[in-house]
């Protein structure tokens, strides 16, 4: 086992400088995130609850789907976060691979479980929406299949980063998987435009006006913002915990080696 990352006392004197540099940024992250995190979590949940309550109680029902269209206030944010979360996972992986930034490895390892959770939520709510609307729980069209592939990429990343005894090797293998999987993101986005799918094209785009009534668009935007903040807060909380856990491991290991050394001295 070589968990030297967060244990400066364990590093050889010649590598002290590099090791301290690597240690500095997680420390700064802990200080900065300590102030931001409670606000992020509180605002995220507050905005999410406002958006969902608005969508469930006050927003109008769709003229043909009826109240089933209210599922969009959960399905759309979770679908957005499934893709956006994977994009952030890819960025963290690239930074970790190229610049070997230890915090990026921590971020990648902690983003994928949250992303997998929101992708599962997207698939489940989509199924609940599809049955009454289309008449099927699931179809193998390009959109649904590519999102299922995204879910498996997340699961693969979760397993891979934790599959190695050496966490750095796990992070590197996971980063390569995450970066290869990025090709899936444009496929998800444009599947509904490139191929005939049962899933409809996007209602909201960067170009062109949305094809959704303003009275439904507002609660949708609010729940998207709320869920996004909750996602970010969850990642920050998990990263804080992970950095502390690494520090704990380092300190315990340092203590164990000094104890072993004193034991050796005692025997000598």
């Amino acid at each position: 086992m070589a968990v030297t990352m967060d244990a400066p006392s364990q590093a050889a004197p010649s590598r002290q400088g590099r090791s301290l540099h690597r240690f500095a940024n997680p420390g700064r992250f802990l200080r900065l995130s300590k102030a931001v995190f409670p606000w992020l979590m509180a605002c995220g949940w507050l905005i999410t609850l406002v958006g969902l309550a608005w969508g469930f109680f006050y927003a109008p029902a769709d003229w043909q789907q009826g109240d089933t269209s209210r599922i969009m206030y959960i399905h759309v944010p979770s679908a957005w976060l499934a893709s956006a979360g994977y994009f952030s996972l890819a960025i963290a992986s690239a930074v970790g691979l190229v610049w070997r930034h230890p915090l990026a490895d921590v971020a990648a390892a902690e983003i994928s479980p949250v992303g997998a959770g929101f992708t599962a939520l997207c698939l489940a709510t989509g199924s609940l929406w599809g049955k009454p609307t289309w008449g099927a729980w699931w179809v193998w069209d390009a959109r649904l299949t590519s999102v299922l592939v995204l879910f498996f990429l997340y699961l693969g990343h979760i397993a891979l980063v934790r599959a190695f005894d050496n966490p750095e090797r796990g992070a590197r293998a996971g980063a390569i998987l995450a970066l290869v999987g990025v090709v899936n993101l444009p496929i998800i986005k444009f599947s509904v435009d490139w191929w005939n799918t049962l899933h409809q094209p996007a209602s909201i785009g960067l170009t062109g006006s949305p094809s959704i009534a303003a009275s439904m668009l507002w609660p949708l935007l609010i729940s998207v913002i709320g869920y996004t903040l909750v996602f970010a807060a969850l990642v920050v909380a998990r990263m804080r915990a992970a950095v502390m856990e690494r520090r704990i491991r380092g300190l315990l290991m340092a203590r164990a080696t000094t104890d072993a050394a004193t034991d050796q001295d005692a025997f000598a």
């Binding site: 949940w45 959960i74 949250v114 939520l121 489940a124 609940l128 009454p132 909380a237």
Partner: peptide, 28 residues
Amino acid sequence: THFAFVATAYALGLGVPLAFTVAAMTRL
């Protein structure tokens, strides 16, 4: 219309992030 589907979706929509939040806070 289709209340069971909508209610299940909202239960999941609140339950999944809530479970993640509780787990993350406990770990932290």
